[in-house]
Design a protein around this nucleic acid. Structure first.
Length: 598
RNA sequence: GGGACCGUAGUUCAACUGGUUAGAGCACCGCCCUGUCACGGCGGAAGUUGCGGGUUCGAAUCCCGUCGGUCCCGCCA
């Protein structure tokens, strides 16, 4: 149909007869001459039509509307010198039409303007419902192309190191722990269900047992949990696994991969080795396992100073095994008013929403500390100098304090820290602060249910534990750290991985620790344990959130901007109206009955 | 499950403290215009102010409910 695209045209085409196809981006009808901006996937070209090109042709051109699909053929001409458009790559050229064909008309009113010239904020609801129109506007297409390029870089890099890309099943087994599964009824085994994979975790381990040595996959994963700007029910992981490697080898190899992506896509050279931080240090200093290191305001422990000054809330916090911690806001006396940090204030609210009972504060004014009487009256000169020393607070600074259960204090100060950083614009936009968080604990105690839960997943291998220690194995496992690591970028988790357990006995013990019975272990993970008994090599790997990587590289706020057809927050596809009802006969075949009232 | 914000013409927005017939740009329709390029000019059509109820002399505006959307908490090994 066409022998050129807009972007290919240049001065050497002048005088040539060309065929072009595309959309009417805009029509300028001067009565005697009509200009049409033809848009195709590559760019624009101005088409000119005069009455002396033919009456029918001219009449047809008058009917064109934005987004009409057309094919034009004609001669490429040089524009008159005084009507060159410097904003267009083809601005020195125009097409003198010989033939015009309307390939497809449009209905009267489009739901929103497509032309980039009319680009305006559009309700996301409409963008999702008419995703093809949103794509045609070009910005989303660019995002998809960047995503494609990222995947290309990844494939090239990993292929060069001898990795094999393998597809693992989408119809697989529901396993306990972790996220809620998406279930798929199995017609040939009525009453039974497949689950869509939350990640290819166990299959990639089995590939290692199978001797594949180096595996990767651009893997679709599914988790039936509530959505966020950076969470979709189906999302894509770059999944990697290797045999006979140490934790250090995995980390440094993947660091090079990340650096390669940033180099090739953004032309940004990242620092040689990313900083590392243990999970414990992250919790101590930032109150979170994914610290944003682009700004300061680190958490400081004031328990030793303030625990016994006689202020009831502080005393109780320490006596019950909790903490008193603080963050220091430079110049906070000026930038943050008392109204905001007292009950009813926005910052107070942030702390309270995170579970804190309250938020104490100290303002440094010269050599004096200004705070509520109940604290101030109990402070000696020694206390004051200790506080200013630990918090590094100077004249004009504001110290915010949290006291109580350590987890709650950490969480609330972390939130307050992030909130203030945004509010006071302390975040430098062009920073890429990568951080490896290492030495995660194996388990976290669920106090309510009085049981252990795996912090990453129950296939991470514990650090410094040998099976020979079998006598105290249980106790040791419970308090052990794991060979687990997360890659954090600017406070966002980009990916995580671990060395896996490759010995059946250890795997059984870990699964028991998270509360599975022998029967459950056999029923749910028997196939894995059996495989580990048949010569599983030591192995480990990592998985990255590809949507998130793309989002950050594009500098957009939501992974929906990186996905062609995303779901809305209710996990619905506004374009197709999925999910939707199915016919009675479909249900009958599956022996499934819907019991909710209509 | 919970919290916050939002919903006005096809679309993006406006409408003061509750007060005339709910306005404007773009799009759409008609007429004019031979060098524009986000062309220009004149005119026109277009609204259940998401929906339902309430308060009021009077509701886009206030209140309650409901539906839809976004962000967040819970949840996401």
């Amino acid at each position: 149909m066409r022998n050129k695209i807009c972007d290919e045209l240049n001065n050497s085409d002048i005088g040539q007869l060309v065929n072009l196809c595309g959309w009417v981006d805009r029509r300028r009808d001067h009565g005697g001459v009509i200009f049409i901006d033809l848009r195709d996937h590559s760019g624009f070209l101005q088409i000119t039509i005069n009455p002396d090109d033919g009456a029918n042709l001219f009449k047809q051109a008058e009917t064109l509307r934005n987004e009409t699909v057309i094919m034009v053929s004609g001669i490429i001409n040089e524009r008159p010198k005084d009507s060159i458009n410097k904003n267009l790559s083809t601005g020195e050229l125009e097409l003198k039409v010989k033939d015009l064909q309307i390939l497809n008309q449009i209905k009267n009113n489009l739901p929103f303007p497509v032309s980039i010239h009319d680009y305006e904020n559009t309700k996301e609801e409409l963008r999702l419902k008419y995703r093809y129109l949103d794509l045609r506007r070009g910005k989303l297409l660019e995002n998809l192309k960047t995503r494609h390029k990222i995947i290309q870089v990844i494939r090239e890099y990993l292929n060069n190191f001898g990795f094999t890309e393998v597809e693992t099943p989408l119809l697989t087994k529901s396993t306990p722990e972790g996220a809620r599964d998406f279930l798929v009824p199995a017609r040939l085994s009525n009453g039974e269900f497949f689950a869509l994979p939350q990640s290819p975790q166990l299959f990639k381990q089995l590939l290692m047992v199978g001797g594949l040595d180096k595996y990767y996959q651009i893997a679709k994963c599914f988790r039936d949990e509530d959505l966020r700007a950076d969470r979709q029910p189906e999302f894509t992981q770059l999944d990697i696994e290797m045999s006979f490697v140490s934790e250090e080898e995995i980390i440094s190899f993947n660091e090079k991969l990340i650096k390669k992506i940033w180099q090739d896509i953004l032309n940004i050279k990242l620092i040689d080795s990313f900083p590392r931080m243990t999970w414990h240090a992250a919790m101590e200093n930032y109150g979170t396992d994914r610290p944003d290191t682009r700004y300061e305001m680190l958490l400081k422990d004031l328990g030793k100073i303030l625990g016994n000054i006689g202020f009831n809330i502080f005393t109780k916090a320490i006596q019950s095994g909790g903490s008193i911690k603080s963050i220091t806001i430079k110049g906070g006396n000026e930038s943050i008013s008392n109204v905001r940090i007292k009950p009813g204030g926005d910052i107070f609210q942030v702390a309270q929403d995170a579970g804190a009972g309250g938020l104490a504060f100290i303002r440094v004014k010269g050599n004096e500390l200004e705070t509520i009487g109940a604290i101030k009256n109990n402070l000696t000169q020694d206390h004051i100098s200790s506080i200013t020393k630990i918090t590094e607070a100077k004249d004009g600074d504001l110290i915010l304090l949290g006291a109580g259960n350590t987890q709650v204090v950490n969480q609330s100060l972390d939130r307050v820290r992030q909130y203030i950083a945004k509010d006071l614009k302390l975040i430098e936009k062009d920073k890429w602060n990568f951080l490896w968080v290492t030495d995660f604990p194996m388990f976290e105690k669920n106090e309510e249910e009085n049981r252990y839960e795996a912090l990453h997943h129950p296939f991470c291998s514990p650090k410094n534990i040998k099976l020979e220690d079998s006598k105290e194995l249980k106790e040791k496992i419970e308090s052990s750290t794991a060979h687990a690591y997360d890659l954090v970028l600017n406070g966002l988790e980009l990916g995580g991985g671990s060395l896996r357990i490759h010995q059946a006995e250890m795997q059984r013990n870990v699964l028991k620790t998270v509360g599975l019975t022998d029967y459950e272990i056999e029923e749910k993970f028997g196939f894995l344990i059996e495989a580990l008994e048949m010569g599983a090599p030591p192995h480990g790997g990592i998985a990255f959130g590809l949507d998130r990587i793309t989002m950050l590289i594009l500098g957009v706020d939501s992974i929906r901007e990186t996905i062609a057809f995303p779901k809305n927050q209710q996990a619905k596809c506004l374009l197709t109206n999925a999910p939707s009802n199915v016919s009675k006969s479909q249900l009958k075949e599956l022996d499934i009955e819907i019991t909710i009232d209509e």
